[in-house]
Structure formats: structure tokens, C-alpha cells
Write a protein that binds this DNA or RNA. Structure first.
Lengths: 168, 168
DNA sequence: TCGAAATATTTTATACTTAAAATAATTTGC
DNA sequence: GCAAATTATTTTAAGTATAAAATATTTCGA
């Protein structure tokens, strides 16, 4: 543990170091955004072309797929990190189209339970399979042995950002 | 170079390996999306609260900041990776609000040149400074000595995705 | 040179997104 | 036991996003 002191977590930085870190942080953010935009755009395009479906709709089904007994509606915005108001029309349409059901709770009339239908589950499974293969196609040339390392770095990144958002 | 054969770029994989890679690729995508969503949401929130401004508007100004002589309007959708139709109302409002000018080219009446105004540049600089410090705050706890490594990985990821999109 | 292809931009239709206000139902504190 | 705070959800207003069609202009080829 003696070596820990060589790079203290909050060392004072001189101007040049500070500037360099600033630039690196900005570059990191731009790369992150570029990667996400590229992949998201292609996935969205394919969802539309192949299935006439959108990603937010798919995301809702993905959450419900692992919940055979359904989910309290209010859980969806939390899990998907979107606003509650946003989900209302999306859930509306998924119900209309027969992919899911929405039933008021008998215990608490404010609460609604959303649940995948049999047809919804079938459609989701089919789309999820394609989704996986599209991703595999896009990422095929990324070295397999570095996938886990990158996932780990992003996990840590997510952690520090979340901490920063929780604290102040 | 003799060692290269130990991990050929396109080795046939058995079922279990294939499955594991599939899962890792999906996890990578979900982490990427989560990091971007977290950071983007916070930056958007602060832009709105501090400056009553939006990120797409800021992004347009950022492109114009480094182009003292202005930019052909058609360059913006390419650089920002958004659709052209999308930019029309955003540019409209930036012109209305006095941040930029839009002047038809004398050589080709289809073309328009957009250019930052003095006030636009001043406002942009002020916002860019805050943007940098918000990012620094969010990423403060990420180890400085791993920033460049992560940027490199994301650069490579961006490269393989782009190649995959260009080729087929 | 004149009609067709190409290019730059806008419009339209549809969908997603947020924040904030509104509505409805439940819980809690006194 | 009842008013006030809390919780779940929807509505509204404004902005962002795409794709596809429309418009206007220029270039190119026979």
C-alpha cells in the first residue's frame, strides 16, 4: 500500500496538466457520443425497415419480457431512464397494437400493471434475435479479447458519473 | 509476428464462445448507452437551467465557432450527424435570436452560408466554458491516467462500426 | 441548348423527449 | 376522521429527430 501515495486521488494540478485533462475529458465525451449515435442510428434504421418498429417501443418490451407477471407502470420510466410522461403515448400504442396489456391494480387505483401478451412476447423474441445479430455485425471487428476490458471501463465511468450526480 | 496466428481475426467459434461474445457485445452496447444517456441528460438539464439553451443549438454554434468565414449550411447536418430537415428550424431560431446569420451565396442560389455573429460568439464562449467545467465535474473521479486509454478504445470502436456501415 | 440528373434546402407527417402543470387516489399527521 | 402531503399517471407545450416528398437551382450530356 506504500505506493498509493504516488498518485493521490485529488492531487493539486498545475495549469498545463489541468488543461490537458480538460481536453481529454472533452474528447472522451465526444467519442462516447459518436459511438452511441452511430450504433443507435443504425439500430433504429433497421428496426424501422425490418419491423416497422421503434427502439423505445422495443425497450419497453425488453423490460417486460423478463417479468412474466408484469410490471408496475411506474417502474418503466425508472428502468429506461426516461420521463414518465414520455411513456404514456408509447404504452398507449403498444396496448392498441396488442403487444401488452394495461390493467389497473385492485389494491391501489392509482397504479397500473403492464404485462406482455403472448403475441407481444412472440414478436419481441423475433426482434430481439435480429437486434443481437445486428449488434454482432456492427461490432464484429472489435477484438473479442478487449470487449470485457472496455465493458469494465465503461462500468467504472458510469459509476463515477452516477456518484457525481448523486452527491451534490 | 509468429504469435499472430494464436488469435486469427476471423476464427471459427464454437457455440459457447459465440454465445459469450454475443452477450458481451450486448453488455457493451448497454453500458455505452447508459453512460451517454447519463451524461447527456445532465448536460441538457444544465444548459436549460443555466442558459435556457439546448444542446443541438449549442452544437451548431460549436461548429461555427471554428469557422470565422462561416460554413455552407449543408455542412452542418454532415458534421453533426443529424438529418438536414432537422436543422432548418434550429438554424431558423438561432438566426431569429441573433446568434448567427444566414446569407444566400451569390455564386449558387441554392446554397446558404451560415456565420456566427459577434454576440453569438460571445455567448458561445461563455457556454462552452461552463460545458467544459460540467464535464470535468462529472468525470472528476475517473482516473486521469486511464482517460487516454479509454479514448483510444472508443476510437477503435467507432472505427470498426463505421467500417461495418460503409462496407455492405 | 435543352431536357434530365444532381444538389441544396424546406416542408410534411410521425414519433420521441422533457419539464411542468393537472388530475386522481392514497397515506399521514394531528 | 379529515386536511395536507405524497404518489401515480396523464396532459400540455416546446423542442428535437427522422424519412420522404416537394421546391428551387445548377450542371451535364446528347
Amino acid at each position: 500500500m506504500a505506493l498509493a501515495k504516488e498518485s493521490p486521488p485529488v492531487s493539486p494540478k498545475n495549469g498545463a496538466d489541468q488543461e490537458a485533462e480538460y481536453r481529454a475529458q472533452t474528447r472522451l465525451w465526444l467519442r462516447l457520443l459518436a459511438c452511441t449515435t452511430l450504433i443507435e442510428g443504425e439500430l433504429r434504421r433497421r428496426f424501422r425497415e425490418e419491423f416497422d418498429f421503434t427502439m423505445p417501443r422495443f425497450d419497453v418490451l425488453a423490460q417486460l419480457d423478463r417479468e412474466p407477471s408484469g410490471l408496475v407502470l411506474g417502474e418503466l420510466p425508472k428502468r429506461l431512464m426516461v420521463s414518465a410522461g414520455n411513456l404514456t403515448p408509447i404504452v398507449d400504442r403498444l396496448v392498441e397494437d396488442g403487444y401488452i396489456t394495461r390493467t389497473p391494480s385492485t389494491l391501489d387505483r392509482r397504479v397500473q400493471i403492464v404485462c406482455m401478451t403472448v403475441e407481444g412476447r412472440k414478436a419481441f423474441r423475433r426482434m430481439a434475435k435480429s437486434h443481437g445479430s445486428w449488434l454482432a455485425e456492427l461490432l464484429a471487428e472489435f477484438p473479442t479479447d478487449r470487449l470485457d476490458g472496455l465493458i469494465g471501463e465503461l462500468d467504472q465511468l458510469k459509476g463515477v458519473v452516477r456518484d457525481s450526480l448523486d452527491k451534490p
